[in-house]
Write a protein that binds this DNA or RNA. Sequence first.
DNA 1: ATAACTGAATGAGTGCCATAATACAGTAGG
DNA 2: CCTACTGTATTATGGCACTCATTCAGTTAT
Lengths: 113, 113
Amino acid sequence: MRNENKPVYLKLRDIIAAAILDGDFSEGAMLPSVRAFAAQQGANPLTVAKAYQLFQDDGMVQVKRGVGLFVARGAVAKLRKSEKQNFLKNVWPDVKAQMDRAGIRPSELLEDC
Amino acid sequence: MRNENKPVYLKLRDIIAAAILDGDFSEGAMLPSVRAFAAQQGANPLTVAKAYQLFQDDGMVQVKRGVGLFVARGAVAKLRKSEKQNFLKNVWPDVKAQMDRAGIRPSELLEDC
DNA sequence: ATAACTGAATGAGTGCCATAATACAGTAGG
DNA sequence: CCTACTGTATTATGGCACTCATTCAGTTAT
């Protein structure tokens, strides 16, 4: 697998990012507290905090100390753009090389286009 | 990046796999010795041995102790099949999910089809 | 025999990850 | 005020994966 070999704090980051992109948390909405999310995911609160920290560094999550963490304005578009750039720059080249080596044609993967 | 965060022995594995799939080493041919390949790649011989070990475990590389490592019969087809199955089962689902979340359409990535 | 090459095992060192146990700091509500 | 909730900092610890230096073991050619 690919998600299994990833550190917990990065897996948590992905879960949060997916939730934000899926609209589970609108902009301005409060995210689950560190302790609550830790309990829900069966993880350590500090590990959750480390995951949240990644979003704070990018300004996608605003912290109101003593209150909670909130999805920043414009975070959804910013996150989607960031995810896209990362995919095109870091993920896709390797994926394409892997496909070429394995002899996989794109038509095997897609129904449309 | 993605290859940068990967352990050296897995990067070496990929290099070897690509070389075999590209036909740089035909079936029955001797692979570079552990020390030679290590020197060539600027890696430690034991790390190279660990990479080679992965192929031995799958029976794609035959070892003649004291002589060298050789590409096993049927290894190319076996390797290509293995790479394909791994891609379809472990890589592609995550990649597709990532594309959907980031709003990337397949047509942005492919010229043909 | 001996030199020069092969792969392989043992053990140690290193760094990241995850956790635990506290303690601290800020905010809201009764 | 006080309680209960927020996020955060500190320190220590255990575990695990990766890497490597050393050494051993097998083969071949001279």
